Amino acid sequence: MTLATPADPEAAKALAPLQAGASSKTGRIGVMLVNLGTPDGTDFKPMWRYLREFLSDPRVIELNKAIWYPILYGLVLTTRPKKSGANYARIWNREKNESPLRTFTRAQGQKLASALGDLPNVVVDWAMRYGNPSTESVARRLVEQGCDRILSFPLYPQYSATTTATANDQLFRALMKIRRAPAIRSVPPYYDEPVYIEALAQSIERHLANLDFEPEVVITSYHGIPKPYSDKGDPYRSHCLETTRLLRAKLGWDEKKLITTFQSRFGAQEWLQPYTDKTVEKLGKDGVKSIAIVNPGFSVDCIETLDEIGREAAETFHHAGGENFAHIPCLNDSAEGMAVIEAMVRRELSGWV
């Protein structure tokens, strides 16, 4: 990087320190993988902190604060931390004392850094929208390492204001506190990218080949959003349906073999349907004996996939009369998953490297 010397002697004097440090303090490119977030522990206090940050986000809960905050602080945050903590405890990575989401996201960052070894000017890091490591702390760390450009990668294949948009919001809030803010790019949704569809298909076929039964129905279960959000223009539902359509075509399956549902609803209002739990129950009651569920909307396995699907959905299916149940893991840091991340990052770095 070369800085032109101004004709004004005073300006030249002021610019001299920048010229001297330009080669070592700037000119690098940061790549920040951003996932949803995770509590720091399963006890009440860390769960309370995490849920407060998450459920205080106006992108997630669009209710007026005057209505929502009394409910949040008076009811939700007095009861939900204990229940959620118990759920997290079942899937907790006790070796590293952290959630699987943090474990997998770290692994993705490490493997991406290795894959981009031919780009010595690129620094890879990872952050959380809620919890730690925070988006702000990682943004500052990248800037301190000389990154004057940052490529942010919200790890959500399908766009929603509740995920991709709020991840970008948080990054720009962090930049408001940095005097020398870097240039920013954000990886767009990749719900229909051929490399992503290919990775999902390969992962599904590989895992199904290792089962001792053949599922009659495979469910693509996506995290839901309130229906009013979709009605107001959030494209999330259409992105999910398109992912399933492309995946169905790639696998050569029909609409009865691969279906779409939505999970993780919260509160009393209507969410996107059909609901995963209701669908699983109905399949069991209708005589379907073998199913599998995959979560294409999650980049890594987490509480919603490992516990809500791996435990709760399995119990629901068995109680309804089903016999064989399988949860197909997320792409995580698998070879297929890393192929998607690397391909998207290399494409979006075009012109910078």
Rank of each mutant, 00 (worst) to 15 (best):
E198F: 03
G337A: 10
G322R: 02
I293P: 09
S264H: 10
S299H: 03
Y190F: 15
L251C: 08
N295A: 12
N210R: 15
V138T: 14
K82V: 15
H318Q: 14
L241K: 07
P215S: 03
G287I: 06
A14Y: 13
S160T: 10
Q170E: 14
F266H: 07
I293H: 08
A174E: 03
E193G: 00
T276V: 07
P39I: 00
Q202T: 14
V124G: 01
R59A: 08
Y236T: 09
E242Q: 14
S230H: 11
L15V: 10
G284Q: 06
G224P: 06
A139H: 07
P182R: 04
Q170T: 12
L246C: 00
N121G: 12
E323P: 06
D212I: 01
R102G: 00
F172H: 15
E136L: 10
E255H: 12
G224H: 07
F262P: 04
L175W: 08
G85Q: 04
A12P: 02
S114E: 09
P46R: 11
V138Q: 15
Q145Y: 11
Y196W: 11
R179D: 14
R106P: 09
A174Q: 03
P154C: 10
W126S: 13
P235I: 10
T166E: 09
Q145C: 10
T244R: 07
A4P: 12
K96S: 10
V31W: 00
H239Q: 11
Y156K: 08
A167K: 04
Y275K: 03
G337W: 05
P39N: 01
D8G: 01
A181S: 13
L272F: 10
Y69N: 09
N168Y: 11
R102Y: 05
R180A: 14
E214I: 13
T243C: 05
P39M: 00
W253I: 02
A4V: 11
H319M: 10
Y69E: 10
A127R: 11
L200E: 13
T244E: 02
G351D: 00
A66S: 07
G27K: 02
H327M: 07
S238L: 14
T279A: 12
K111Y: 09
R206P: 01
T305K: 11
A11N: 06
L142M: 12
Y229P: 01
R265F: 12
R140K: 15
T103W: 02
